[in-house]
Design a protein around this nucleic acid. Structure first.
Length: 585
RNA sequence: GCUCCCUUAGCUCAGCUGGAUAGAGCAACGGAUUUCUAAUCCGUAGGUCACAGGUUCGAGUCCUGUAGGGAGUACCA
């Protein structure tokens, strides 16, 4: 089933041909949703742009176009302003489209013509430390982009590239050997690991010799020391259990958990190969990759301006002490993903502060022959109420688990107030759905590249542009069908869309298939979030203005179909954001 | 110093790759419930899109500059 957008675009293209109007190569012939419904439902601005290129009068050109334009079956046409071509969809066409949609399990969303193998790298917490609130962005954005890409027909592989081999293990092992509380590690391993990490971190800041000992423990681990390796394995094991608890609550899952340690064996040969290929050479005791000298210095991630001169800014792939770092692992990881998963695209859902690292990584990978499209899906920083970034190493960040608890608790309180009569068990489930939904929706309704202030009260606010507003729309749909005492067949027969409220809702519904694919244009889930808010608003207005059960005949049936579709689109759309819908609340 | 990002209503934010009179939510004010769940709806008010130039039929959006804020800047990830 084609969207109105697709239909109108192809008709427009045909009209240009028929009218003998030549388009310059690569000239976009586009129809877009009207900026204001007063002008219609769709608009084409091509005539104005085209007139400029062809040095014609735009209104005259628009007139020629609409004379050749055949859309009589679906829309009315007008030329407005300097040369806008406006389309107003006819009621019969709305009815027909809604009828098609009710018979379409994909709700009007097409499948991409050229499915890609997409690897999504997201979440990637460090082990031996519980996730804190800062991990929320990568986890939730990455999860929803994965779900959306999959639904659109791409072949998606999700990979949790956990930090299970970093420098922090020197400290953790030192702590394990010297400060461990056996009872605590059995009772709550993750909290005890965190305590150890914090304690040692503190000691290191004050005490140089302890810092050296930590480094020694790390070197021993990396050289295969049996005792340290066993401690490491234990740490990773209990950490994964803790991480999975959070992922279960968030309904997030991964196809793979290939962390840093997975690539250990590849690093030595990789670095050798880099040297042999002439890509890496020694500098100040470290082995470094330098610029490929193919870009102007300003765009070259391996150049930096110091004292007015462009000088080298290399990527270190082996440190002076012989150890490898995350750059090395990341290069190996790209290689693995290309070879094992035949990746066409790799998306790194990682904080914007690492953009320089990714520029270098992508450049090196290209030089190593990587043809895939590598993209840093960067996002802004979560700030404290003082407007400064929440630091990741100060140990004072709210833990993610606590934030989720608070969100659920706050949803529970509102539930008690508004729906105290519901059974205990159901209220508990609802509080989870609403609380976690709120946290996710807060994240996904912001533009990902902007910073935002972490404000729990706002996050779990249950009015306005929030998850509960959307969930409540679904509840209202369900309420109607609960009261409906006869069987209804959802088919296209006799659907009539005519009232303003019905048309507004039908318009919002049919836009689902037009909007969803555009999420992947900029990898921005907030486009879907905003769409769902628009849909919910249209539904609530419809709900107030158009009685469903009290209407009769074709009107009643049409309205029931609109309600059913609203429910399905809300459930599908929210599902793609990882948010569940309740039947009552 | 250099590179990149940000600045839109009192507050929090959208703005679909250059379109028509710049939109939501919160807060404020006024209305709607014998009617399918009022966690809702309808309305009022609120703007020099940081500032100054430029590009053109047309700029919140593109280019240049200025001011303010943030991030990054070789052995952390």
């Amino acid at each position: 089933m084609n969207t109105f957008l697709e239909i109108l675009e192809s008709r427009l293209l045909a009209a240009l041909t028929r009218a003998g109007i030549e388009q310059p190569a690569g000239f976009p012939v586009k129809v877009v949703a009207a900026s204001d419904v007063r002008h219609g439902d769709y608009q084409a601005n091509t005539a104005m742009a085209l007139a400029k290129r062809l040095k014609m009068n735009p209104r005259e050109l628009a007139t020629q176009v609409i004379e050749a334009l055949d859309v009589d079956d679906i829309a009315e046409l007008e030329i407005a302003g300097p040369g806008f071509i406006n389309f107003r969809i006819k009621p019969a066409a709305w009815s027909q489209k809604v009828g098609q949609m009710i018979n379409d399990s994909r709700l009007g969303v097409g499948v991409v013509a050229d499915p890609q193998n997409i690897v999504v790298d997201f979440s990637a917490p460090n082990v031996a430390k519980p996730m804190h609130v800062g991990h929320i962005r990568s986890t939730i954005i990455g999860d929803s982009l994965s779900r959306i890409s999959r639904f659109l027909g791409h072949n998606v592989t999700t990979d949790n590239h956990i930090g299970d081999w970093g420098t922090q293990f020197g400290m953790v092992i030192y702590g394990w050997k010297n400060l461990i509380d056996i009872a605590a590690i059995e009772a709550d391993p993750l909290q005890e690991l965190l305590r150890l990490y914090r304690a040692v971190n503190l000691l290191c800041k004050e005490d140089e010799p302890i810092k050296d000992q930590c480094r020694d423990e790390l070197v021993k681990l990396q050289n295969g020391d049996v005792e340290n390796f066993a401690i490491w394995e234990k740490c990773v094991e209990v950490s994964k259990v803790g991480l999975n608890k959070i992922y279960d609550r968030l309904d997030v899952s991964f196809d793979h958990w290939l962390g840093e340690s997975f690539y250990n064996k590849e690093l030595e040969p990789l670095v050798k190969a880099l040297e042999t290929a002439g890509l890496a050479r020694e500098s100040d005791g470290a082995l470094c990759v330098f610029s490929g000298e193919e870009l102007p210095p300003k765009q070259d991630p391996f150049k930096e301006k110091r004292d007015g001169e462009w000088s080298d800014f290399p990527m270190i792939v082996r440190k002076g002490d012989g150890a490898f770092n995350y750059a090395t692992t990341d290069i190996a990881t790209v290689d693995y993903r290309l070879k094992q998963w035949n990746a066409d695209k790799i998306w790194y859902v990682v904080d914007a502060r690492q953009s320089l690292h990714f520029q270098q990584l992508f450049d090196v990978s290209k030089r190593l022959g990587c043809k895939a499209d590598l993209e840093h899906v960067s996002f802004g920083t979560i700030l404290g109420k003082d407007g400064k970034p929440l630091k990741t190493r100060d140990g004072d960040l709210p833990q993610l688990a606590d934030v989720l608890d608070d969100a659920v608790k706050s949803a529970r309180a509102v539930l008690e107030e508004k729906s105290g009569h519901l059974p205990e068990l159901e209220k508990e489930e609802l509080a989870k759905m609403i609380g976690l939904g709120s946290v996710k929706f807060t994240e996904l309704s912001h533009h990902r590249s902007s910073d935002y202030i972490f404000d729990l009260e706002k996050m779990v606010a249950l009015q306005g542009d929030t998850a509960p507003y959307l969930q409540y729309s679904f509840v209202r749909v369900c309420a109607i069908f609960r009261k409906l005492d006869e069987e209804i067949s959802f088919d296209a027969d006799g659907i009539q869309i005519s009232d303003e409220g019905e048309i507004n809702l039908a318009r919002a519904l049919t836009q689902f298939g037009e909007v969803l694919p555009t999420v992947l244009d900029g990898l921005k889930p907030n486009i879907l979030s905003n769409y769902l808010l628009d849909l919910a608003k249209a539904f609530h207005s419809f709900f107030e203005a158009c009685p469903v059960l009290k209407s009769e005949g074709e009107v009643r049936k049409s309205r029931l179909v609109l309600c059913e579709l609203t429910g399905r689109v809300l459930q599908q759309g929210l599902g793609l954001l990882g948010i569940q819908v309740p039947e009552r609340m």
